[in-house]
């Protein structure tokens, strides 16, 4: 019992200290990790999520790449033809620094592509993937 409390306390203090040092993206990852009860995120799983086709969403947008394009470092395009900034953090460093905006677009885009909201695990994987791009 005491050990459990100690572990929880240590984990909390570690994640708290990391979040105070790291930026908003790392904070988001930490939040997703807690929500997913995750042992970690994988850029590889994130890449698969980003590129694979789903059939639960809208037929015109079977994949993330339908709008974002297959090159993460190149701009994408909305169905109406408006340019979307590249998803790769190396190209668009301002991306994913506003948590509300990140959540808004996950909610909308996952619904359109997967036909459901993304899980915290999926969000964490995807964010890990684009942060490394």
């Amino acid at each position: 019992m005491n050990r459990t409390i100690a572990i929880v306390f240590i984990t909390a203090s570690i994640s708290f200290s990391t979040s105070s040092i790291a930026g908003p993206r790392e904070d988001l990852l930490a939040q997703y990790a807690v929500a997913a009860k995750s042992s970690g995120f994988s850029a590889e799983r994130g890449q698969t999520l980003h590129t694979r086709n789903f059939n639960g969403g809208k037929p015109v947008t079977p994949a993330c790449t339908s709008c974002h394009g297959s090159d993460t470092r190149a701009p994408g395009s909305t169905p109406i033809g408006k340019s979307i900034e590249a998803v790769a953090v190396s190209v668009t460093p301002s991306r994913y620094t506003d948590p509300a905006k990140v959540e808004k677009w996950f909610r909308r885009n996952c619904t359109e592509v997967l036909g459901r909201e993304c899980t915290p695990q999926e969000k964490g994987d995807w964010l890990t993937f684009v942060m490394g791009q």
Binding site: K58, A100, K104, R107, R108, T111, E112
Partner: peptide
């Protein structure tokens, strides 16, 4: 118009 554009 067929898209989810929901806002808070």
């Amino acid at each position: 118009f067929g898209d989810d554009a929901s806002l808070d």
